[in-house]
Simulated assay, not measured.
Amino acid sequence: MINFISSFIILLFILFTCITIQILTLYFYKRKTLAILEELFSIKPSLDLDKTLPQILAVIKKLFKPERCSIMLVDDTDKMLKIKIGDNISTTAMRKIKLNIDEGIAGKSLTLGQPVVVKDISKSKFYNRFFSSEKPVKKEKLIVLPLKIDDKNLGVVNLHFKPNTRFPLSYLDKMLLKLLSDYISRMLDGCYKYFDVVSDSMTKMYNHNYILKRLEEEIELAEKFQSKLSLIMIDIDHFKQINDKYGHQVGDKVILTISRIIKNTTRFSDIAGRYGGEEFCIILPNTKLTDAINVAQRLKNNISSEKILLQDKQQISVTCSFGVKEYEIGDTVEEFINKTDKLLYQAKLLGRDRICY
């Protein structure tokens, strides 16, 4: 009888302990859920992608405290995953790395629609095949969160942690991460819908009106914080002759090629758009003239070295002329653009395929 009572008491104690642990676990996850929601709701409403992404990244860093993290989005032009913004990620990696939607760990996460955990990326065949050419892959834990709306793949969030970081993915952990990725996905979807309104339908770059709006905002910031601001105007050389000789389809291909090179060469913080026809414009916040000239030089080299393949397997090359100007305090949007445009016109007069500043 005594043994039975003792066993019963022990059983009650175990049951009570299990229930207590479950209650504490649920309480912990409730607090964690509220913390995630509180941080997500702190993001200032904006349909502008380049204003929303830095806020999302800041929230992710605050919530999870990763060693480094990045957000990769599907590029509309070539349907490849590319790093749009990152923390503690090299500029070279951000420009160079691009993946097929179904490739690697990111592809697995998007296919499953669930977070994927890699305990040690240095042992991952994919990581070693793709990244070891630059430098040895560090021993890190990786969590990849999918960003998608229904069946539409938007991108992924990559979270890198130290090897000894404890991050067990229980069912409730996965629910919280799913909540986070769903919320971010809906924010991004709203940004994309807004981008359709403010972008050029052919190149998927910002359109003329949006460039003017953003330039006005950047001028206000430059004057308020006494920061540097530069502008690059670009015009395709002999574009009319290209259209007349090869036809408008080739002309469109040239414009698309130039827009792709501009997107791949500029930083995330730069605002690049199609200003009109064969003319492009790049706003460079926090950038002095010498740095803007370096950007223009890289663009000039990348454009002139590009071979554009025609239907008959013939290849053509094109060049561009550049006007580069640093903002002068007191200038209006129109004055800033006119001064830069005059430098572009000067580059044309001097023989094209050059940079004037």
Rank of each mutant, 00 (worst) to 15 (best):
F280A: 15
I5M: 14
G247Y: 04
E217I: 04
C69N: 14
S109T: 02
Q55G: 10
S42Q: 10
L344Q: 09
P115K: 00
Y194W: 03
T17H: 03
P66V: 02
T165K: 09
L147D: 01
T77R: 15
K139V: 15
K313A: 06
K178M: 14
D151F: 13
T20L: 14
Q55E: 14
S6P: 13
D78Q: 10
N302L: 05
K193L: 05
G190E: 05
L180W: 01
V116I: 07
I60Y: 02
K98R: 10
S317F: 12
L159K: 02
Y183V: 05
M175K: 14
F13N: 14
G107Y: 00
D76C: 10
E39A: 13
F161V: 02
Q315A: 09
E218I: 12
Q311M: 07
L112E: 12
I101V: 11
K213D: 13
S132W: 05
E220T: 13
L40Q: 00
P54T: 06
S133A: 03
I234D: 03
Q55P: 15
I101Y: 02
V116L: 04
D182N: 14
K193M: 08
I242V: 13
N158D: 13
T332H: 05
S124R: 11
A272D: 07
F167G: 00
S109R: 01
I271A: 05
E279A: 14
V144A: 09
I149R: 03
E220C: 10
D120W: 05
K300I: 01
I232T: 08
E216C: 11
D341P: 00
E38V: 03
I337P: 11
L26F: 14
L179A: 07
T111H: 14
D235I: 12
V254E: 06
Q226F: 01
I308Q: 01
S170N: 10
G323F: 06
S122R: 08
C69Y: 10
P54M: 01
Q241W: 04
K204Q: 11
E220W: 10
I255R: 04
R95Y: 12
C320G: 08
I5Y: 15
D120E: 03
G273Q: 10
Y127K: 08
D353S: 11
D173Y: 07
S259M: 00
G351M: 10
Q22S: 11
M1R: 06
T77P: 00
S201Q: 10
L49E: 12
L63H: 03
E279Y: 05
L284A: 02
R31M: 06
V254R: 00
S321N: 02
I234P: 04
E38N: 11
L57Q: 15
T287M: 06
Y327D: 02
T265H: 05
R354Y: 06
I43N: 01
N128L: 10
V333S: 09
F225G: 06
D50W: 11
F4W: 09
T266A: 05
L221P: 08
I101H: 04
S42E: 06
R68Q: 13
L177G: 00
E328I: 10
A347E: 00
G247R: 05
K62I: 05
N301L: 08
F41L: 11
D244H: 08
K44W: 06
D270S: 11
S42I: 10
N153V: 01
L63Q: 04
L309Y: 11
